[in-house]
Design a protein around this nucleic acid. Sequence first.
DNA 1: ATTAAGAAAATGAACGTTCATTCATTTTTT
DNA 2: AAAAAATGAATGAACGTTCATTTTCTTAAT
Lengths: 194, 194
Amino acid sequence: MAQHQKSTDKRNALIKATIELVNNNGFHATPMSKIAKMANVSPGTIYLYFENKQDLVNQTYIEVKAEYTKYAFANYNEDACVEKSFEMIWKRIADFKLKACEYAFFLAQCDNTPIIDEASRQEGIKHLQPLLDLWARGKQEGIIKPIDDYLLYAYSINPLSFLLTVQKRAAFTLSENQIEEAYQAAWDSIKLNK
Amino acid sequence: MAQHQKSTDKRNALIKATIELVNNNGFHATPMSKIAKMANVSPGTIYLYFENKQDLVNQTYIEVKAEYTKYAFANYNEDACVEKSFEMIWKRIADFKLKACEYAFFLAQCDNTPIIDEASRQEGIKHLQPLLDLWARGKQEGIIKPIDDYLLYAYSINPLSFLLTVQKRAAFTLSENQIEEAYQAAWDSIKLNK
DNA sequence: ATTAAGAAAATGAACGTTCATTCATTTTTT
DNA sequence: AAAAAATGAATGAACGTTCATTTTCTTAAT
């Protein structure tokens, strides 16, 4: 354990440092030397774990994205009705984005800039399938609007990224009540009106 | 005219080049030398128009943001009812974001990263007031949900940024029909259900 | 109209700095 | 004592910015 453990520790420290520095300074102002310093590691050591800077950022992205989707679907099973299932997933996602906001902000940054390889972006998108499946079921049952998944995502999930950014910038926190209001807005935007 | 005209041309060319290069390569991979080359200008000339790289990006942001809001409210007057007014503004914004997508993508990038000064960000936000006023009216008349403006923006306006990004990435174009669907989702998310 | 002189604008080579990355050496682990 | 992991000084390329020089424009006297 010891040897491999130590390695994982360093790797994690490097990824954590990358997230923090890129969030606060941007990719352009995040030199490898600073990442090394914050992770308590020598600059050269980074290259034992990552090919180069691009690889470090790509892998950080993939890792964070995986944690995000893992969290989102952790307690999900397909037994509940569409509406309840969606609410469960939505609230898990909200939980993650607003609580683990460092992670979520990093993702938002990567998703809105060309700092990530297209391949890594594709890799990160994979794990969203359960939500797409749920939407397919919802459309079939006439509960969710029969519109493109991109539209459903844009209106029901993505707004959380904006709210997270506002929260980070304005040093203002969404109340429990506001999260409920946000959920209502999300559901209202995609549910099929009878 | 001649002398001052020429200056404006160079300035505009520099701003245009900045947008294009930052969009495609990211801020970190956009050296001043490339900006100069694309604008057909010597590197030194940039410093006649802008203090430094940060100033160039800040001013580009402010300029694009101003164009965006100017376009959004160009044909707006406060005579129509809340719903119609919102629809008009929304469609103008959609028009801008999906047609002038280079501009909109640049804004999205700036809004989701720390590359812009906080001061410039504040400067850019100013011109949104008419929309906030409309929402205030809508809340008062019981037409729009009595929730925070950030929530209204997150659900009714911001999704367009996501759709724009998808459009740019996936080389896929939103159809007229899908824009209508998007508008419905936007309105459904913020209108007060009787 | 032409031109000469002065001012303004533009140039691009040069500068100093910073950065990503390497590798000879040291430290730690097996 | 051999192997693996980590170090950090060294390297060379790239960058933002400067400034001595050149080019272009403006003015006004002829």
